[in-house]
Design a protein around this nucleic acid. Structure first.
Length: 531
DNA sequence: GGCTATTGCAA
DNA sequence: TATTGCAATAGCC
């Protein structure tokens, strides 16, 4: 790649407000180039993603070059430094930056040639060219749009939480008679299990566990335990979200711009970091308050709009296992957990009570994760033996699922890998291990990956279709976020009906399964008030 | 400042 | 001794 053409390409990018993020994410410069539709930088992703699809651990371009081509590249830290003295990429002399970018482009081109035949051999070439690569510009545009955050609301919340934490802290100190660092599991363990003499319920590899599950059992035994749980909840939300997110607002755009990692997960999901916008709280009222700080620009004329796949993983399981009970339940449009409860407890679906549904729901989740009697007992509160009975019952009512899971594990043992519906692979070298724990872990991964990964493949196809339609229709609607089974948009009210129809058309059409994919939509001026 | 362990947020 | 992630904190070197 001639250095001059790279220079010409990146010069205007130095005007871009988002480029300053390069200091946090060395690949972001390439991301930006790709986002501008500059073809040479696509090869960067091409080779990185190709290597990922071939089962290489997610390593950067520099390592990949050393690994595959035995060529040592100049690290980005030579340009921007590292740690405290690190500068942003736009501070680098443009001639130096250009050479660096050209080296990236050159090396990735060479890597691509090397990886081409292994890709085709394993049937992964279309996955790369027709799914992953077309997704790159979609992700880049989402990153560049960012999402607006109500920093004032979070700042106010921070003050409130300060008060709340102070009060809980004081009450705790009064209750135990001295100060303690509640953020230290070590100090907490000493306090609870030595000083207060409570009986530990669970062990970690270094001592006794003080996680929320363990503390739940001790809640009634000493008033300090409840206070610790309360403090934990508040301090978690405050440090991870309320205080951290406002600092991530880009001063140029006034919005937060996440980075999506397309090569980070073993199942084919994309991940989000810096900040992670795929784990914004919702389950508690305090958490929902954090979510409300994500707002539509120019609300209420503009709205945030969410479209999510309903029960996509269980629908994928129904298709892949061809279990008639599960397929029929979806075809009848039933509430799937109630339907499972109806089967398991042999009552009409209308006679299913909340406890029966709760247990069925645990089993339906469990089957996707590779369920174990212990896991079921943990989640349900029943004994391990009861958990085992639930599992036996579940499989006897869904024989197709049982046979499917057996066949996946059998094939994994023979092939040393499992795959999604469209051929994405996960290698499982431990599947034949002599160690019961190691092998069991690999079996759960074998069961989970084809389901979670197929759902991820479907969402990726949907994102490409949706963005392409938004472009065709010349809509002002922006795709902002992906949260695994959910897409979040920013939409002007005039386009709301159009957008609804668009996602109802495009998301279910991403793949042809023996069950239809259901999409639910909701909207509001912020992300927390939907539904 | 880097590393590991623990904890907890989401799908 | 349930799947996939990211990140904050403590405590060590």
């Amino acid at each position: 790649m001639p250095v001059e053409s790279v220079l010409a390409a990146i010069r205007p990018l130095f005007e871009s407000p988002i480029i300053s993020k390069c200091a946090h994410n060395a690949n972001y410069d390439m991301t930006v180039l790709t986002g501008q539709g500059i073809s040479f930088s696509n090869v960067d992703f091409d080779s990185m993603i190709a290597a990922h699809l071939l089962g290489r651990p997610a390593i950067g371009l520099k390592n990949l070059s050393l690994d595959v081509l035995n060529h040592e590249m100049t690290p980005i830290s030579d340009l921007i430094g590292k740690g405290k003295k690190q500068v942003t990429f736009d501070q680098v002399e443009i001639e130096v930056a250009g050479k660096y970018a050209a080296a990236d482009a050159d090396m990735t081109g060479r890597l691509r040639s090397t990886l081409e035949s292994p890709l085709a051999r394993d049937g992964l070439d279309l996955l790369l060219t027709d799914l992953e690569m077309p997704l790159v510009p979609v992700l880049v545009r989402m990153q560049r749009h960012g999402i607006k955050l109500d920093a004032g609301a979070l700042h106010e919340m921070s003050q409130d939480l300060n008060q709340q934490m102070y009060q809980v802290e004081e009450e705790l100190y009064r209750s135990i008679g001295h100060r303690v660092n509640i953020n230290s599991p070590l100090q907490l363990s000493d306090l609870l299990f030595k000083e207060l003499g409570l009986k530990p319920t669970k062990r970690t590899k270094t001592g006794y566990s003080t996680d929320a599950n363990s503390l739940e059992d001790l809640k009634e035994l000493h008033p300090a335990v409840k206070l610790i749980l309360e403090y934990r909840q508040v301090s978690k939300l405050k440090s991870t979200y309320v205080d951290a997110l406002p600092d991530m607002i880009n001063p140029e755009t006034g919005r937060v711009h996440t980075s999506y990692n397309q090569t980070g997960s073993a199942t084919g999901r994309i991940s989000s970091n810096d900040p992670n916008l795929q784990n914004i709280p919702i389950r508690t009222e305090l958490g929902r308050q954090v979510r409300r700080a994500f707002v539509a620009q120019n609300a209420p004329e503009w709205q945030l709009f969410s479209a999510d796949y309903s029960q996509i993983e269980l629908r994928v399981l129904a298709h892949m296992s061809q279990d008639s009970g599960l397929l029929d339940a979806f075809r009848r449009g039933e509430d799937i957990h109630s339907s499972t409860a109806s089967l398991m407890f042999e009552v009409p679906i209308n006679d299913v009570d909340s406890e029966m549904r709760r247990i069925a729901k645990v089993l339906n989740f469990g089957v996707i994760y590779g369920l174990s009697p212990h896991g079921i007992s943990q989640q349900t509160g029943f004994s391990r033996e009861e958990g085992a009975k639930f599992i036996d019952n579940y499989f006897s009512k869904y024989p197709g699922i049982s046979e499917y899971l057996d066949s996946v594990k059998f094939k994994a043992r023979a092939d040393q890998y499992v795959a999604t519906l469209i051929g994405r692979r996960r290698y499982l070298p431990d599947i034949n291990s002599g160690n019961f724990n190691v092998r069991g872990g690999a079996e759960r991964m074998a069961v989970n990956m084809p389901i979670q990964g197929t759902a991820a493949d479907i969402m990726k196809a949907a994102m490409i279709r949706v963005q392409s339609r938004l472009d065709e229709e010349e809509m002002r609607t922006k795709l902002l976020l992906q949260v695994h089974d959910e897409l979040v948009f920013e939409v002007p009210r005039e386009e709301m009906e159009l957008l609804k129809n668009l996602v109802f058309d495009e998301m279910p059409a991403a793949i042809d399964l023996d069950v239809t994919l259901k999409v639910d939509v909701k909207w509001a001026s912020n992300w927390g008030d939907m539904e």
